[in-house]
Design a protein around this nucleic acid. Structure first.
Lengths: 229, 229
DNA sequence: CAATAAACCTGACAATTGTCATATATTTAA
DNA sequence: TTAAATATATGACAATTGTCAGGTTTATTG
């Protein structure tokens, strides 16, 4: 029980901020903090979740396996985001797997603490609703991107997205390092195609690489590529 | 003001059923019924919506235009479904356009009637949340399909989906008739590719056509195709 | 540190899908 | 009813993307 939710800064970023002090206390008393190493699973597609996971640190990929054995990363979750909400609210088993792409710290919050508050505190419910509405919009955008943009455009978009959301280090490399396979699972392509495009972008001076690390070298041109020039 | 919401059967299918009698009365007093002809727009991408639209009859496509001029149909909405919820809740302009694909009857419900209830009736909020959670799951599934299935598989899936959700007429043709272009916008492909696949499916005895109408001839084989055989 | 495993990379080729051109059928409206 | 507009259809070809096969590099572990 590392710390109290009441004092957790992370809370500012998610719907927990709409909870009353008493509600928050309950959450705090029932939560379980967990540490995960890169590669470890938080939950697997098809599992019934007894609660949600609040990300305190690190990044997780939310992905889905398809019949043919391919994996699609549907979104990434980081600091402040709550995973498993959808399944808990819909009272279904989860449709996605959550796997750490960097070392992580998460808090498990039993569903009772959530659903009781949902039923009694409209502010909280509305706040959760807003977040879900946001996720839905993003999902719609992904659908459109998937069907209408080329693999190259989606790769370019992925790099820009990672820079925008996770930033870059002192040498200009993306803070969040994904494997080539993860990239291919984000943009929905074969790993070889993904690698080829990385090589091409590098050759054209759009990005730079250093081992697994990737940095954005020419943001302007990447943007133009996404827009279709 | 054709009829009272209290007596509307449609309500059973959506979150309005969680409203109290008084709340429902308010909705009923402020709602506006509209009739739309096939092809007419209910709202356009980017508009600010002053309320939501409850579908009483007919079907609407919710789609998004991309920079290159292509249109992606993200989902279809029919009897009982509420359109525009996401935008009203997130207090954003809508990310999708809604266009009638058959003659329609819809009720416009001003957002005040909705948001007041959201803020005070947790049951209603939770009910809306459940619906949104459902939509989000479906959106996730579409993302995976888009990135991992071939155009043929997605076409096959579209036919099965239409049969399952809208049924077929006495001669075995799908009740909901979409243009070839609509089909191509659903599966995310070029209209020509879509037409070619329809021809191929027909030749192979998977479907039958009569003008614009399409009927499922061999459901088993279509299913196998979707699963990847 | 060497051995092994895993990740990354590239070439060659095949399959899928998109584009353009053009023809035919169907619907709509004058 | 006929003319115009729109939707459907097909061929030829190009571009994109996937697959398989083989490398090299990088990371992991005994």
């Amino acid at each position: 029980m590392s710390s109290r939710c009441e004092n957790c800064i992370i809370r500012q970023f998610n719907s927990l901020r709409a909870m009353s002090k008493e509600e928050l206390k309950k959450v705090s008393d029932s939560k379980i903090s967990k540490t995960l190493k890169k590669g470890e699973a938080i939950f697997q597609e098809g599992e019934k979740l007894d609660g949600v996971f609040c990300v305190r640190d690190g990044v997780s990929k939310l992905s889905k396996l398809s019949e043919n054995g391919k994996n699609q990363i549907v979104r990434l979750a980081s600091k402040g985001e709550v995973m498993g909400q959808r399944a808990v609210i819909a009272e279904e088993s989860t449709n996605l797997s959550a796997i750490a792409v960097s070392d992580m710290e998460v808090c498990f919050i039993p569903k009772e603490a959530i659903s009781n508050t949902l039923d009694t505190n409209p502010n909280f419910a509305v706040e959760v609703l807003r977040h879900m509405a946001h996720d839905l919009r993003e999902a719609d955008d992904v659908i459109v991107n998937m069907s209408q943009k080329t693999v190259k455009q989606r790769m370019a978009e992925a790099f820009l997205y990672l820079k925008k959301n996770y930033g870059e280090d002192a040498e200009g490399f993306l803070t969040l390092t994904l494997s080539r396979e993860d990239y291919s699972n984000v943009v929905g392509t074969a790993t070889e195609s993904c690698i080829r495009i990385i090589s091409e972008f590098k050759k054209k001076g759009l990005i730079k690489t250093s081992g697994k690390k990737i940095g954005i070298a020419d943001e302007r041109k990447l943007l133009e590529l996404v827009e279709g020039f």
